[in-house]
Design a protein around this nucleic acid. Sequence first.
DNA 1: ATGAAAGCGCTAACAA
DNA 2: TTGTTAGCGCTTTCAT
Lengths: 337, 337
Amino acid sequence: MVTLAEVAQHAGVSASTVSYVLSGKRSISTTTRQRVEQSIRELGYHPNAGARALAGKRSNIIALMIPLRTDMYVPVMMEIAIAVATTARTHGYDVLLLTGEEGPDAVRRVTGSGLADAMILMDVELEDERLPLLRRTGQPSVLIGLPADTDGLTCVDLDWTATGALCVEHLAGLGHRDIAVIGEAPAVYERHTGFAERTLDGLRTRARETGVRVLHRPCDGGYDAMAVTLARILDERPATTGFVVQNESAVEPLLALLRQQGRAVPEDVSVVAICPDQVAVQASVRLTSVAVPAQEMGRYAVEHLVAKLDGRGGDDLVLIAPELTVRASSGPAPAAS
Amino acid sequence: MVTLAEVAQHAGVSASTVSYVLSGKRSISTTTRQRVEQSIRELGYHPNAGARALAGKRSNIIALMIPLRTDMYVPVMMEIAIAVATTARTHGYDVLLLTGEEGPDAVRRVTGSGLADAMILMDVELEDERLPLLRRTGQPSVLIGLPADTDGLTCVDLDWTATGALCVEHLAGLGHRDIAVIGEAPAVYERHTGFAERTLDGLRTRARETGVRVLHRPCDGGYDAMAVTLARILDERPATTGFVVQNESAVEPLLALLRQQGRAVPEDVSVVAICPDQVAVQASVRLTSVAVPAQEMGRYAVEHLVAKLDGRGGDDLVLIAPELTVRASSGPAPAAS
DNA sequence: ATGAAAGCGCTAACAA
DNA sequence: TTGTTAGCGCTTTCAT
């Protein structure tokens, strides 16, 4: 294993000079710098991460806590994780992958051990049990998702309330008066995941304002669950002509079932999805949708964290404005029969 | 920040004693151990990761390289990643998330810096450019996926050749004589991803043996691409009655298209999928499928790595035997018309 | 069964 | 512009 001392000797300079060449924290004459860089290359030197962390008091690692469950939004999680990892690298950070399994203990462990300099939490719940600890320790962190109380925290998220409102607005504008919302799995609501509840809020508020009726039904993914849910909806509200779907694994089943029942999209019923663009485009009907900006959230989280670690920027609350893209699944409400 | 020295002082013992209580590497009297453990709890001590890595020469971190692309098997990747992370924790390891982006450089960086003790590579290509380096450095590692030459490497994978064979066998056994294979995106074959080519091998070999005709067509995901692909297949081989699908995002489109054309599943055509069980069960027709054992692969990779790091076990090649579950999408071939 | 002390490889004052 | 040196917090011989 090549050490800094060996590089120094090889280049005929002191250890600190090599260190400073690496960190750029003081000016070095061009000739020295080049000799050192040459030696580094020749010897194949890589600074030891442990020593660096110990002496420099920063590990250059960002911890990313992802949810253990995979009952929702797997592609979104993955996209965020990849965006976090690549963005982190461009800033010289590596990413430590933590699952929610350990819960608050993971926060304690990572903070206490100096394993990571900062952390990003995904799948934040409204009353998340990790938050008190985060606030208390002052650990630099960014939440992806919004808890009930954001005081003293930095959060990034899609503006779900606006997203819900936007969906209703679009359908209402097309003349739909009875809208059904096909939501995430019941478990998601039971654990008070912020985005699900906020979306619902937005949906309902704007519905009230526009005089539209909204029926919300959670739905486990898959064809069978969707069949049951759809049957119930049409039973309770036969006049339903608009659907908002916030559940990736219900999208295609819904379309299949509507087709099967002879309800044409968008002639008879309109469908608006809340999902990544890729899903919307690949569906059997190109879906009018509000995109979940996964990459943007991941990138932003890292950049904010890096700024914090560099002493720039403080707490912040970033709500990304939703964008609705009109595709082939929504159109004017059919004339009332 | 609480240090080991502070714990030692608080407990009235020496630093080494605290260290040994933590590592269990030498016997400690019960009373001392209890005093030390008490102090650790009272002070909220967490060993510093950097110092530990520096002095102990192991970081207790396993690096996981995931592919950057998300053109295939996102849920599988995610499941593997989560299985790796949770299994690693049960063995006292943390997981560093690397994307393929850096390529071989990442291997060099992680190895050289002592950031991780070992690595797991996903999405291994037949002639993967990271392998020479891995072999040369002797870095403890496990590949998930099989390269062309496995010499000196440890690999885990589903036995894709057997998987392909099994699918043909099942359909042939049901009397199907013309089988179409709907594969991954063309790009997957172009970069010679091992599993895709091996599956094809298994498919073709067994087809030859059972006197069945096989037509293979790569397919980008989504409805439109699937429509084009299906049209071509039925054009070239109108007698096709069996389908093997190895592309998650083509599954539902295929089913929808078949339905649309009035071809009943499984009465007119049979479909066998290669996908996670969850996908097979949630599809609009419960799919006969060969499962991709994602969790098992992740868990095995970690366990093998831990064994290696503990000086137990060496190189190894584990091919997980495929299992085909018969569900509602396959049945006897219709009588020839 | 326990302690004392020498590093592990690096960073960052402090000097020159 | 460069060198010298004192740690960072831990593990692990070597002693006792």
